[in-house]
């Protein structure tokens, strides 16, 4: 910690405490042995983690979120990769417009998307369907997948592809054997980031999800607006741990700072 005075160190410590405090609070409360909200002052207990198993609606919501995130992240990547290759490597009329269009959900508040999808789906008779929800999520997360795909496609020199071409490979072989493996890390990172974004999404899903397609954040939100109990804390703790694992993967392979620059 060179070049840092004591004031800077104290500030840094307070900042880190501020960032971690609510998460630690959630984790602490989830280990309480009491039947109500309290800190585990009289000893740790796993009773509220066992309680999760008695609430299948949360477990169903968890799997709903996982499926939703897997499907929508995959579709988002399938849309993004060819688009990123076109935008990064071709100059064509309308390129800027198309790229702005595909990134535009970043500028639209999730609430507005939620409102728009609610009305759209009820008009065309897709209200409350899983595929409607998945499509809405695809719209929401495609910008994230696209940005990471764009970053890796832009950094890709055409030399290796030209080399493969001159060695006799067909255009399709060049794509499959050279281009795709080279952009794969960016694509996988985009998929993972899309997955998490979809998995965590609340604001839009609150409008679009029906009781049959309730995602975990939506289920948790409805629970919290009714009552805050140690059960919701233990569920949150599980989520914190799972997210932490994903975060380590992302950080290991890409660096969190690179992924988040310009997010939002």
């Amino acid at each position: 910690m060179q070049n840092l005075g004591p004031a800077a160190r104290i500030f840094h410590a307070l900042f880190v405490i501020f960032i971690l405090a609510p998460l630690i609070m959630v984790i602490a409360v989830s280990f309480t042995d009491k039947g109500y909200l309290s800190l585990p002052t009289d000893g740790l207990s796993l009773r509220w983690f066992r309680a999760i198993l008695d609430n299948p609606d949360f477990i169903d919501a968890f799997w709903m979120s996982v499926w939703l995130a897997v499907i929508s992240a995959s579709v988002a990547v399938l849309i993004s990769v060819p688009a990123a290759l076109a935008i990064a490597r071709h100059k064509f009329p309308g390129r800027d417009v198309i790229s702005a269009f595909l990134l535009s959900p970043l500028m639209i508040p999730h609430l507005v998307l939620g409102v728009a999808f609610l009305q759209f789906y009820s008009t065309i008779g897709l209200g409350g369907s899983f595929y409607g929800l998945a499509a809405a999520h695809v719209i929401l997360i495609t910008p994230y997948a696209l940005r990471l795909a764009l970053a890796s496609a832009t950094g890709l020199s055409t030399d290796a592809e030209n080399a493969a071409l001159t060695l006799g490979a067909s255009k399709f072989t060049v794509f499959r054997r050279i281009t795709l493996p080279l952009i794969l890390p960016g694509v996988a990172g985009g998929w993972l980031l899309s997955f998490i974004t979809s998995f965590d999404e609340l604001t839009m899903s609150v409008f679009v999800a029906s009781p049959a397609t309730q995602t975990l954040p939506v289920r948790m939100y409805h629970h919290i607006t009714q009552t805050i109990d140690p059960l919701i804390a233990s569920i949150s703790t599980v989520l914190i741990v799972l997210t932490f694992l994903v975060m380590l993967i992302l950080d290991r392979f890409y660096g969190l700072d690179k992924i988040f620059v310009g997010k939002g």
Partner: peptide, 20 residues
């Protein structure tokens, strides 16, 4: 003739090796 049917050997300035 397209490049993949010319059969010429090329060494690129960047070498253009397949990194994977």
């Amino acid at each position: 003739t397209p490049p993949n049917q010319r059969g010429l050997g090329i060494v690129f300035q960047s070498y253009a090796l397949f990194p994977h």
